[in-house]
Structures are given as C-alpha cells and as structure tokens.
Design a protein around this nucleic acid. Structure first.
Length: 773
DNA sequence: AAGGGCGCACTTTTGA
DNA sequence: TCAAAAGTGCGC
C-alpha cells in the first residue's frame, strides 16, 4: 500500500539484524507511524593515491584487509570538482563500516571518505529526503518490537520526497521541573525532584509535587507523556538541566524513564542534546542563544521578547533564590506555582517557534530534534553535505587544521559630534553575494602550481587568491539556491491572496534561509568546517574591503559627506539626489545592491568606532555598542547614559543631561538605588580554575562554588562592589545578601556612572567636574 | 559527543 | 607609574 507521511524523526534501528533505518512520521490521516527501511547498505569511499592502477593494487589490498566487506566496486566521483576514480566499499553493518573505515585509513593507500556519515544521514541525502517535510513510499504492515504507534510498517520501495499535502499539526507537551538544593545547587544524586508541571495542547496544565520522595512524581510524568503521546516535548534549559536530572533521579529510584515511542529511555545525543525515540525534544534555551538581542537568556526574558505569557507571570528564579524560598511555606507555594507557569509559557513559546524550527530542519536536513541545538557551523555543514552529494561530490571529513588568522572587514573612523539627517546605506548580503559573484569556493580555488589562463579566472585584490570563473563552485551553487529561494519567498509573500498559515510558514522559512545564507562566510573560515577554505573567507573580506572603500570614494566624488562606515554600510548625509547617484553607480559598476536602511534625524558619534546613538524617524532612540546596550554594566550606569542621550539628542540640552547625572548621583548617595540596579553581570568563559587573572566575577564565582553552587563555563555571575580595602576583586560580592549600606557608592559614581555619562558628554564640552556639583 | 569569522572599546590586573 | 596582557561583550 501507498503511504504518505510527514517525516518527524529518523534514526538507526540497532534491534534489527540488517542495517535498518527507522523513521517516525505522521501520515495523511494524522496517524502516528513508524517505518523501517532495510534496503540499505552502509558504505564508504576510498580514493587511492595511485589513480592509474586502481583495479590491481588498491582494490586487492583493500579486499585482503577487509575480507568481510560485502562489495567493493569502482565508481567515478568528484573531489573538489575534479573527477576521480573511487572505490566504494559496502559493508554489512554500520559498526563494520566504521571499523573498516578505520582500517583503511591506517593502510595509507589513499583518502577515505564518508565513513563518518551515519546511516540515517546517508539515507536522507541519497534519497533526497528532508525532515519536517512530506514523503511517500509503498509499505506493508510490519511489527516493530516495543513500538507503540497507530501503525508500523516496513518500506517496500524507496522513500521519495512528496508534495506537501497539508499542514501537519504536531502534538506538543511542555514541562518544567522544580529542583531545590539544601545547600547550594540541587544535586540529582541526593536532592529529589520537588515538582513537575506539564502543559499540553488544550491549554491544560497539571502539576504534581512531592516533599521528600519523587518516585510517584517520575511515574506520573512518564504516564503523562504516554497518555498525551506528544510529537514534540518542550522545555527551557531541558538539555542541560531537566533531562540529566530526570535520568539520574530515575536511576536513583530504579524507575524506567520509558518516554520514547518505543518505550526506550532518553539518551544524550549529538550536539549535547537529549534524544527521545519518536519525539522531537526542543529546548527553548537553544532559541534564546540564537537571539542576539536577548542579553539575559532566561525563560522570562524569552517570553517577554516573544510577548507571550503576560498573564501567567513565570519568573526566572535562580538557584540562590529558590533555595531561600524553599525554606518557607509561602515560598514553596510560590515556587510550585511558578513551575506551573513556566510550563505554560514554555508551551506557548514552543508553539510560536515550532514553525521556524521545522523550516530550518527542512532546509538544513538536520532532524527537528537536533536542528536547534546544533551550532550554525553544523547547520551549514549539513546543508552543504546534501548539496555536494547531489553533485556527486565526495564528502570530506573534518580535519585537524592549523590556525592562520586572516584580515577581516574595514571600519572607518567616525566624524565625532552630532550630525543632522543621516541615512545608512547597507549592502544587501554582502559576503554571500561576493562569494557568489566571484565564485569563491574550495573547488574553484587555484592552488599553488596549478595552471590557469588569466582571462578565465578572478584575481582577488590585495590577497591575490585566484578562482576559476567556471564551472560553478559548491559555494556558488549553494548560495545561488539560497539567495534565489529567498527572492521567490519574498515575491510570494507580497501576493495579497496568500493564506494566513502559508504566510506564517513562508515568513519563518525566509528567516531560516537567511540564517543559513549569512552563515556561509563564517563557515568557510571555520576550522571545523568540512569545506574549510581560509582563502575563500579571506577573499570574501578582501573583496568586501575593496567594495566599501570604492563606495566611500565614489560617495565623496558625488559630494556626499561620509560620516562613518563599518564592513558593509556607510553613513551619509541624507541628500536624495546624491544618494540616488551613488546607488545607481553601485548597481551598475559593482553589480551589487546597496539599500538605504535606517534614517537618523540626529546621530551622535564619539571618536570610537562601533559606538553611536541616534534618533530614528519615529523618534525612538537607537543605541549601538554603547554601555546602554551592554550586559556587563550596572543598570544604574546604563540608565544614566540613556537619559543623557535623550537629553542631548531629543531635548538638545547638555545642561539637562548634566542635571540628570547629578540627580542620579544624589539618589545613589542617599541609598535610594535598589541593589538590583547596582549588580554587574559577567559570564564565565571557562571554568574558574582556568583563569590566570583574578577578576571580580571569577572571585565571586569561586566563593559561590565553595558554598555549594554549581557554576561553570557559560554561566553568568551577578555581583556588587562593596566598601572595603584592596583590589576590586576583593570587594566584589554576590548580589544576594548585600545591603544598601555596604555598597561602595564611590566606585559606582567614579567607575560606572561617570564613565558612562562622560562617554557622551565628553565630546560636548562637559567636564567631569561639572558632574560633581 | 559542540558552540562560524574578524575588528574594536573598554576595564582591571599584572609585572617590570 | 605605565604599558602589556587578560578578559568581556559588543558590531557587522
């Protein structure tokens, strides 16, 4: 029988004798199904060094070394665009393939390819299957051990991509875990789970709490997952916190955490995320890390960023606070309520972000389960693997590479002071377009000793790298697809007849395409990239420098004042005729698109690059790079700076600005500033032992760790500077428990408020003394 | 089981 | 006292 289904997840099925891929899907009557596909054989390639003597020498050697190989054949493949004769070694199992690949590498008779690509990935790339998209194939009923689904099948034909029939509604379950340490952070080894909250599609939310024993609570959660049978499970920080905690607690209690659709337990998988068979596990914290505007990556902030959960009031309560709250009855109630609220907010956020995640999954080819926890580099990697494979290219493995830095972009010195009526001209996707235009790619790069005809190559200015004009390189092909798809989406979005659901889907798809497009340059220069090519990244920045400098020169030529520029943008006076002249020139001569973006009615620059503030057309204040937008300054300093900027730009009054500063200083001296506004947050870039310098945030972290709190790389430390002798790092204390009296007011005036205010006022003729009045 | 690139400003510590 | 180094977080 025919089966059409939406591909939810895919994995290798190790319970079968033959190499088997198990696919989880939802068919066109909304049945949850599992399909096993067994007509597949793991394989890898060897490209012998001696290309002329394939059959006799290399083939024989491999045959001898791998007596268990099912088949060894020669096949023509491409390696960086060049045709090569490769030996395809087919194996009887994935483990045998990995082992055979290892043996072959050791033989040193040639380069080995694709032994590092897992069976499900190979399966998807060879048959052009995309996750979160529709597929079809012939199936027949087939019992799969332990799998509970509406139907289980085996595939009787190849699975093919199919036209999307309709939107698939995924069942979602959100959960939140409450854990509290007795002293310090909660430890799964001894501290039981205090409460679990679950929220499901109908808006229902339930929770269960336990004071001492958490056995019932874990069982309850397993039951909830079973009865709701979600396709997607959502949590916040679940990969780092909830799942490991659940797993350890169930081990302690000797309860099986049978959450998978095959009754298996969660297990840690690729990219540090937790995998649950047949369901997609989404961690909202992964969304938060991708949103650069979000300074504090908490559920609370994420919710307010997406404007959800307004009535629900889910607070982000950290370890220290919850420990304190837990000691009192009222605090316990608050924590439990909050836990429930968090599950509700998580559900809302999950629904809101699912479309984007699905689109990114389809585009990159990474299963929904992994796509959000995979770093940008791996998303591009996955995208290129599929693109390259369709071209018959061999997929290189990740290699150890020496690190050579290369020059990046140009930043122009700003003209300090306040400017009226300024427009920002931005190149549209500059690096991707340059990479495409000049065919920058590892497979078009002319390497040392290679022949070329000068009229058939691009020579990159400054760095002198050379690229063939034809044929199209991998990056050009990939970027062309992406850039064109984006244009198509934009055209469709502009149609008035478009349906709401389609509009939403395309909007999210456009975002996802953009993310992959813009990551390609960084990917080319990333040591971990399969298609790492420093020359490509270096050429992109060299062309970028050339482009922007020529644009600045031309701008001056047409009589435009250039106030500032950074990488792919220039700030010029808003003179329509002159600007249009420049735009036309860029279009015709550089064959790139430059667009007028933001307009500032007034904008202020200091002498520093990458730092400015201006009033946009709607009157709002736009601050770039300055303390206001930095997460590592106290709120009080940031507020003062913002007030100063408003006074100076909107009210055109430095006197007003000075008054504001003086007022704040007074407030601080009188102890009327809340401690929270005095906390300074800094991240730990590594574990505390690894630091060679004693800094305030590291010293505070060390103290907290001694008290039993868990703090490591990536965690933020919030501290306050208190009165006392010695170095700054000796005067830093964790913000909890510090009273207004202890605060080192002078530090905040001299090292926070004044610098932040003077950064702006210094260039406007105000002296530091004036702030003391 | 991992976490694209380089350019820049700025604070604090370090060590001569 | 001062420059260099370490460290963080930003812009694009």
């Amino acid at each position: 029988m025919k089966c059409k289904f939406f591909l939810l997840d895919i994995g290798e099925d190790y319970t079968q004798v033959l190499p088997t891929v198990r696919i989880w899907g939802i068919d066109d009557s909304s049945d949850r199904i599992a399909i096993v596909a067994q007509q597949i054989k793991p394989y890898f390639f060897v490209v012998p060094k001696d290309q002329d003597d394939l059959a006799s020498s290399a083939l024989d050697q491999i045959r001898k070394a791998l007596p268990n190989a099912l088949d060894i054949t020669t096949q023509t493949k491409k390696l960086l665009g060049q045709q090569v004769q490769a030996l395809k070694v087919t194996c009887s199992s994935s483990t045998q393939m990995v082992e055979s690949g290892r043996i072959t590498r050791k033989m040193n008779i040639g380069e080995v390819f694709e032994d590092d690509i897992r069976l499900p990935v190979k399966y998807m790339m060879d048959f052009h299957l995309a996750p979160c998209a529709w597929q079809e194939c012939d199936v027949s009923p087939f019992k799969i051990h332990n799998v509970q689904a509406d139907a289980t099948y085996q595939a009787d034909s190849e699975i093919r991509a199919s036209r999307q029939e309709k939107q698939t509604k995924l069942r979602m379950l959100a959960f939140s875990l409450l854990v509290v340490g007795q002293k310090g952070s909660a430890r799964a080894i001894k501290d039981p789970i205090r409460a679990v909250a679950v929220a499901t599609d109908g808006g229902k939310s339930k929770s269960i709490a336990a004071e001492k024993d958490d056995r019932e609570l874990i069982k309850w959660f397993v039951q909830e997952v079973k009865s709701n049978d979600p396709d997607v499970i959502v949590g916040f920080n679940s990969n780092r916190l909830a799942w490991p905690y659940f797993m350890e607690r169930s081990k302690q209690n000797q309860i099986k955490l049978t959450l998978g659709r095959d009754s298996s337990e969660p297990h840690t998988s690729l990219y540090g995320h937790t995998s649950i068979a047949g369901r997609a596990n989404l961690d909202l914290a992964d969304f938060a890390t991708g949103i650069t505007e979000l300074k504090v990556k908490s559920l609370e902030r994420l919710a307010s960023y997406f404007k959800v959960g307004r009535g629900v009031q889910a607070e982000s309560i950290d370890d220290l606070q919850s420990s304190a709250l837990w000691s009192e009855e009222s605090g316990r109630i608050r924590l439990k309520h909050n836990n429930e609220a968090q599950s509700k907010v998580s559900l809302e956020l999950g629904k809101l972000t699912l479309t984007y995640a699905s689109q990114l999954s389809t585009i990159t080819g990474l299963p929904l389960d992994q796509v959000m926890s995979a770093a940008v580099g791996f998303r591009v990697d996955s995208y290129l693997i599929r693109r390259a494979n369709s071209l018959g290219e061999l997929i290189p493995s990740q290699k150890e590479q020496p690190f050579y830095p290369y020059r990046g972009a140009i930043v122009f010195e700003p003209k300090p002071g306040i400017h009226e009526s300024v427009v920002v001209l931005d190149f549209a996707s500059m690096y991707p377009n340059l990479m495409r235009k000049y065919n920058l790619s590892p497979d078009t790069l002319i390497r040392q000793g290679e022949d070329y005809k000068i009229d058939q190559i691009f020579v990159i200015p400054e760095v002198n790298h050379k690229f063939r004009k034809s044929p199209d390189g991998l990056y050009r092909l990939a970027l062309s697809d992406l850039i064109e798809e984006r244009a198509v989406i934009k055209r469709e979005l502009a149609k008035p007849s478009i349906a709401d659901s389609r509009f939403r889907e395309l909007t999210e798809r456009e975002k996802a395409v953009k993310v992959v497009t813009n990551a390609c340059y960084g990917y080319a220069g990333w040591l971990g990239a399969r298609w790492y090519a420093r020359e490509v990244a270096e050429s992109a920045t060299a062309l970028g420098r050339d482009t922007i400098t020529r644009t600045v020169t031309k701008a001056k030529e047409v009589g435009l004042h250039v106030i500032y520029g950074d990488t792919d943008s220039i700030f010029v006076e808003n003179d329509e005729d002159k600007v249009n002249k420049l735009l036309a020139w860029v279009n015709e001569t550089l064959e790139l698109e430059i667009r007028p973006e933001r307009q500032y009615s007034r904008i202020l620059f200091t002498e520093a690059m990458k730092r400015y503030a201006g009033l946009l057309q709607d009157g709002s204040l736009d601050v770039v790079g300055l303390e206001v937008v930095r997460g590592d300054w106290s709120e009080i300093a940031k507020q003062v700076q913002e007030e100063v900027l408003v006074s100076v730009l909107r009210d055109r009054s430095t006197e007003e600005a000075v008054k504001k500063v003086i007022l704040t200083v007074r407030k601080l001296r009188e102890g009327r500033v809340p401690i929270l506004d005095l906390t300074i947050r800094k991240s730990l870039a590594k574990s505390v032992q690894e630091y060679s310098v004693r800094t305030p945030h590291v010293e505070v972290a060390k103290k907290l760790i001694k008290e039993g709190w868990e703090l490591g790389a990536g965690d933020q430390v919030a501290y306050v500077i208190i009165k006392g002798p010695g170095k700054l790092y000796q005067k830093a204390e964790s913000f909890t428990g510090v009273t207004a009296k202890q605060v080192d007011v002078d530090y905040y005036i001299q090292n926070q408020i004044k610098p932040a205010a003077m950064r702006i006022l210094g260039g406007l003729g105000v002296s530091e003394k004036q702030l003391d009045a």
